[in-house]
Design a protein around this nucleic acid. Structure first.
Length: 213
DNA sequence: ACATTAAGTGATT
DNA sequence: AATCACTTAATGT
């Protein structure tokens, strides 16, 4: 079947999961999925049925407050996965974050039911889960540092750089409003900060465009 | 040409 | 740094 294609992207991006037994298990229950940029992968409050292993593109993970305000947390790149999923299938809790495809993205979906059993069955899987946790935890600390200690203009600049990395391009197609939403700020403030960044020669602006220099 | 949406500005808190 | 009220500019139909 086409199923054998699944292990190829896994072997390429998740070298830690390349033990034959584990690959066979992944091949049995995993499902390769491609989504267009902007597709919602996970909604807040939604029940998590699969754990995504990103193999191409990027997922954007966001927190949302009571009144619909958003806050960007981190991107998930190829070779990474979401610790929230593990938390959710262990605690059987609904998702507390939203995940959206930042680019056209490809991932292998692992049913949450096998996540726990595999930890005992496959040493490589256990290490992977622990690493996923450790990675997300330090990403989160970094985000907290950024929010609490950095000024908004620094955060904005850093976010633009990350976004550029996710897009794999220097030129981004975004509105000021979208940036404001991700950083939990307001459009006017972002506009003004962007203009400062442009003046200091770090970026170039056009309608719906931000170009990193 | 007109309507819609993005971006800029100044004042206020 | 956020919000408001308003203007100006760019874009789609």
């Amino acid at each position: 079947m086409i199923k054998s294609d699944i292990t190829a992207p896994i072997r390429e991006h998740f070298p830690g999961l390349s033990h034959p037994d584990l690959l066979e298990s992944i091949n049995e229950v995993g499902e390769l999925k491609s989504v267009d940029a902007g597709t919602k992968i996970m909604e807040i409050g939604g029940h998590v049925k699969v754990m995504p292993l990103v193999t191409k593109g990027a997922l954007k993970v966001l927190r949302e407050d009571e009144d619909g305000g958003e806050l960007f947390l981190y991107f998930l790149y190829p070779g990474q996965s979401c610790a929230m999923t593990v938390q959710c299938c262990v605690a059987d809790a609904p998702s507390q974050v939203r995940a959206v495809a930042e680019e056209d993205t490809e991932m292998v979906l692992i049913p949450v039911g096998v996540v726990d059993p595999w930890i005992r069955k496959h040493p490589g899987w256990k290490d992977f889960i622990l690493n996923t946790y450790a990675d997300r935890f330090s990403e989160l600390l970094h985000t907290i540092d950024s929010v609490v200690f950095h000024k908004l203009d620094e955060r904005l600049h850093e976010y633009l750089l990350e976004k550029s990395r996710a897009a794999g391009a220097k030129s981004l197609t975004v509105t000021h409003q979208e940036l404001a939403d991700d950083l939990h700020s307001s459009r006017e403030v972002i506009s003004r900060l962007l203009k400062q960044l442009e003046k200091s020669g770090k970026i170039k602006l056009a309608r719906n465009k931000v170009e990193l220099l």
